[in-house]
């Protein structure tokens, strides 16, 4: 099967996932080759090992310097529900925290018919338990009505710092949010002692849910010299920016949703999305085209907004290892 080649660390994890989903071998060169600490990071190697574990027959070759990786994917096991414990950290400023993955990312999978048994039953102290059910096939995704925001939820957490910080963040966030809707619930999550892990800090994660179950989210985490109020306002303003961008999909989840659309049954999936200032979804579109050969149609959603309507013909992805019930 033909080899797909990429260069650099852009979308590295997405590219590996696309390789496994498509069964096509992928080679990525030039991984931080200019960096003074070149090559794959430990967490990336961990992810490769993870991909190896959940598949049969995967071959991974990493160059001596770690700047090149060749992934020849096997077949995803998929025979029984998955239970994993992931160790490391539960939040940082590059990727979503476990709070948002649990409350925002997982619900997005309902769009393709995955809900029952999909959960993060426990987490904390740098450890996350993840349960994933098996489904036979991904449903065609059709999500074009953004709806109106009906409620806002949030988790204000403080770890190994004054519990008061948590309440200060909630108060600051409400100073901006209260004007919009009454249905706001911000939960103060204070960790103490054993369960709190090693690193002190505080963070505010927010989500806004619409009448059609579109979920937008944001979060901000503490940095040295930044007050709880400043962290809270940063998260809150970022949520407002997200809401204003519109569409049915939070920007941090657009790439994932594009892949879900790709996997849908052999029918046209459609989704309305707000524009991204960052361009990452565009890179995902290109990577999907390079690996799967699937191009999306993209049209302005309407005359007034900058939102776009994306559509694509699903690949009819099927879980071939699912036992017959």
């Amino acid at each position: 099967m033909s080899l797909v080649k990429f260069t650099g660390t852009d979308n590295l994890r997405v590219r590996l996932v696309l390789s496994v989903l498509s069964g096509k071998p992928v080679r990525i060169d030039g991984i931080r080759s200019e960096d003074k600490d070149p090559g794959l990071r430990d967490y990336e190697v961990s992810m490769l090992r993870f991909l190896e574990k959940i598949t049969n027959g995967t071959v991974i070759e990493i160059s001596l310097t770690g700047t090149s990786v060749l992934l020849k994917p096997g077949i995803i096991s998929g025979g029984s529900p998955m239970e994993v414990t992931l160790r490391g950290i539960t939040s940082d400023d590059h990727d979503l925290s476990v709070d948002l993955i649990r409350t925002v990312s997982l619900p997005h999978l309902q769009l393709i018919g995955m809900s029952e048994g999909l959960e993060i039953p426990s987490f904390g102290g740098g450890e996350v338990e993840f349960l994933c059910p098996i489904i036979k096939q991904a449903k065609t995704l059709n999500f074009v009505a953004p709806g109106k925001i009906k409620r806002i939820r949030g988790i204000s957490h403080a770890v190994r710092v004054s519990p008061q910080f948590s309440h200060r963040m909630i108060e600051a966030s409400r100073s901006l949010l209260n004007r919009f809707i009454p249905d706001i619930y911000l939960y103060a999550d204070v960790y103490k002692g054993e369960e709190s892990g090693k690193s002190p800090g505080y963070a505010l994660s927010l989500l806004a849910e619409s009448t059609t179950s579109a979920i937008h989210c944001s979060e901000a985490i503490s940095r040295p010299g930044v007050t709880p109020e400043e962290v809270a306002l940063e998260a809150t303003k970022a949520l407002l920016t997200e809401i204003r961008r519109g569409g049915c999909i939070d920007r941090k989840h657009q790439g994932m949703v594009l892949i879900l659309m790709l996997l849908g049954s052999e029918d046209v999936g459609r989704c309305r999305m707000g524009s991204s200032a960052h361009g990452r979804p565009i890179q995902v579109l290109r990577d999907i085209r390079d690996v799967f050969g699937t191009s999306f149609k993209i049209a302005p959603a309407d005359a007034e907004s900058k939102e776009v309507l994306l559509s694509c013909y699903g690949t009819g992805y099927v879980n071939s290892n699912r036992p017959v019930a």
Binding site: T9, H94, K150, L176, F180, L240, K252, A277, R280
Partner: peptide, 28 residues
Amino acid sequence: ISDRTKEPTASLDEWNDEVMLDSIRPLF
């Protein structure tokens, strides 16, 4: 683009403006 989910935060100062805050009311 690198490999991160969160976009680097752009300036959020526009939300210090009441008119700006009012402008998104129709979305609720």
